[in-house]
Design a binder for these strands. Structure first.
Lengths: 165, 165
DNA sequence: GGCTTAATGCAACTAGATTGCATTAACTCC
DNA sequence: GGAGTTAATGCAATCTAGTTGCATTAAGCC
């Protein structure tokens, strides 16, 4: 289960920007790549595969095949157009690699109640010192807990259960 | 695929220590719980579900059911006898919550080559500042890359491929 | 417009993890 | 020590994320 959010339909301007970015890689510009990259660029938060599947099968448009979506996401990451981060449950979340929405430069908080992912105003921790000969390829910090609303509701549930007991 | 390591058979002294720890929770002391906790306490590194399944089905002893293992691990974590950490691939790794092997007090490095998990001599990063009303429940840092031996081998492979090309 | 082949869509599959339910075995009481 | 209660277990089925193989489609080139 991933989080949901309302999103305006893909706008033409960002579609063409996404198209240009894809064309710049030298690979083929396909409907699937453009739509996925556009969705990532329009999203206010990192999206998981499921989010994108739901998002892109919305409304009258025909959806993108699950496997194609996986492959497009892999391709975007490989070509530097997207970043991938896995949360503690191991689900990959993707963000567009745009300078103005640079999700890799700050941390994310995942609410265990509603599943929402919130951008934190803090840089990721410095990489630790590794033993000699070891090479760092990546680092992911998963910060989780309850957001304001979920914490409020779970506290309310606990106190009402306490009254009934 | 998880890493492998040789481990001596469960010793009687640690079995009874594990048993006491389980009894102290007030819940039932079962063979499965004792064996799993003992395996975690004897392990030099965090173990994944698969490691434990292999480990506990070894030799003449009858194995523990996959589902039971999942439930026992959940129970151990719930009761503070074990810690859970998921790597970037989403596989949960478990460690015994013992003062002398306190894996939650330092970070782990996961080799993407051989899958080994190595304890790093560094404390986990300080928790980030959260927005008002948010509550932190947990934090996991996944540090990955190549260990000395895998880095050596992958470099050797690259350079030999380069010579043949 | 035709050709080439990268990209797609479909079906099948794998691994980690979960759920439902009947059975087993810890623990309690006598 | 034996019977009763019910938590814990074992089994089958299921779910979710992700992958692989292969035939078909369509992007880009001539």
């Amino acid at each position: 289960m991933c989080f949901n959010f309302d999103m305006s339909p893909e706008s033409n301007s960002s579609i063409s920007a996404a198209e240009a970015a894809i064309r710049a890689t030298g690979s083929r510009v396909t409907v699937a790549r453009v739509r996925v990259l556009n969705a990532l660029r329009s999203a206010p938060k990192p999206l998981c595969h499921r989010d994108l599947e739901t998002l892109l099968s919305n409304r009258r448009r025909s959806g993108i095949d699950r496997v194609t979506l996986y492959r497009v996401l892999d391709w975007l990451v490989e070509n530097g157009l997207s970043h991938r981060a896995a949360d503690a449950r191991g689900v990959s979340r993707f963000t567009a690699a745009q300078p103005h929405i640079e999700h890799s430069r700050h941390m994310h908080f995942r609410c265990t109640g509603c599943g929402n992912v919130i951008c934190l105003d803090a840089p990721p921790p410095a990489p630790p010192k590794l033993p000699k000969g070891f090479h760092l390829s990546g680092m992911e910090l998963d910060v989780r807990g309850e957001c304001q609303s979920c914490h409020y509701h779970s506290r309310a549930a606990i106190s009402s259960a306490g009254l009934n007991a």
